[in-house]
Amino acid sequence: MRTVALLLLGVRLVCPETHSLKYFFTAVSGNIDFPEFTIVGLVDEEQFIYFDSNTMKVVPKTEWMRQKEGADYWDTQTQLAAGTHQAFRDNI
């Protein structure tokens, strides 16, 4: 018998201007064809970053993020995401 656990967590931040920032963390367990952990970041409903436990790398999803941030930023974000992945894994 297989068990699959799914944990979804959404974070929504809104500033007084007209912008919104949301992060969605998804953690799953069990034998399924989907990454064990993903992070999707949205600004104004547009995806700007992505991380999953298969690639273990945070990547920009918009041209403005590719141009704005350098390699150090992406390395730091990847380390933070990997730590969050481990915490979710421990909790599941």
Rank of each mutant, 00 (worst) to 15 (best):
T3M: 08
V4Q: 07
G41K: 08
T55W: 07
L6K: 08
G83C: 05
I39E: 02
L13P: 01
L9V: 12
Y73C: 06
S29F: 00
T84D: 10
V4S: 02
F37R: 02
A5T: 14
L8H: 07
F48S: 04
E17A: 14
N54Q: 11
Q67A: 15
T55G: 04
A71N: 09
A87Q: 14
C15M: 15
E46I: 14
V4D: 04
F24A: 09
T76G: 05
G83Y: 02
L9A: 15
W74D: 00
N91H: 13
C15Y: 12
S20N: 06
T84Q: 15
L6T: 05
G30Y: 04
A81W: 00
F24W: 05
H85M: 12
D33K: 09
I39V: 14
F37A: 04
R12L: 14
L9N: 07
V40I: 08
N91M: 13
V59T: 13
K61L: 14
V11A: 09
G30A: 03
H85K: 13
F48E: 02
P60Y: 04
A71R: 09
C15D: 13
F34Q: 13
T78L: 08
K68V: 04
G10H: 07
T55P: 06
Q67S: 09
Q86W: 04
K22G: 03
T78R: 02
T38H: 02
G10F: 05
D75T: 10
W64C: 11
K57D: 04
C15I: 12
L6R: 09
I92A: 06
T78S: 03
H19Q: 05
H85D: 10
R2K: 15
F88L: 09
E69V: 06
F37K: 05
A5S: 09
L21Q: 00
K22S: 13
D52R: 13
Q79G: 04
E69K: 10
